[in-house]
Amino acid sequence: MRIVTFTRSTPDTATKVEVDAKGHVGWGDVATVVNPWDEYSLEETIRQAEANKATSAVLAIGPDMHNEALKHSLAMGLQEAYRIWQDGLDVSDSLAWATLAAAAVHKLGDVRMVIFGKESVDTASDQHAYQTARKLGWTMLSYVSKILAVDLAAGTIKVEKLLEEGKQVITAKLPAVLTVMKGINEPRYPNFMGIRKASKAVIPVWSAADLGVSLPPASTQVVAFMNPPARQVITEIIDGANAQEKAAKLVEKLLEAKVL
């Protein structure tokens, strides 16, 4: 049995990302990292696989820059890694992405759980996870903050889910797709042995044809990337003899700006 997770390489959160004169998005020579939300889903996949005597597998969809995230995952302790790609594949459309993801899960076989990070900090968002669940026809459990129980024999899972106005406890049928939140666990750092082993790993690449998928034309298109308009702001420093005077002046300014 397998527990599967997806990851991708993204620019580090501290990196400046910009659109160049040709309209390409870049971040200079700065190395990519594992999508920050995926630290938690990778860790949870390792833990759930150990607890349920399953094999942990990690997949990425995209060009070879995503090998970095896969190698990091292997170094953390994921047991298998695969990448889905072929030249000219357009995965900017979430439906195309989810169709490939669902087909890859089927190809792996005997998968009971797919665990995603909450979202991706590049161009992918959270809709990829929801659409993968729908393409698989599996239960979707989003914003999971704790996995309380997994009973493979009974085919059930019990989780705590975060809502904007509180928390729910949910029981559900497996197989299921989960998105997990920051705080569900404390992600481990890869150790030296793990890094050495991962650096030697050869990651199989599956094409759409390998997955038995022929993608229809994408339903959405990326027209262009732009830099956000610079904030046209002239900063006014509020002076005063003491805190009270500064506070009074600031409140005056905020009332004038009609934001209170």
């Binding site: 702001v233 900063t235 805190a243 409140v251 300014k253 209170l260």
Partner: peptide, 28 residues
Amino acid sequence: IFKMARFGVVGDLYEIVPALTAELKKRL
């Protein structure tokens, strides 16, 4: 953060914020 701000107050937040709260209570 000051480069993004329309209004900036240079000072200890533990002095400015309570003063701001008191002033807002009065004005609002």
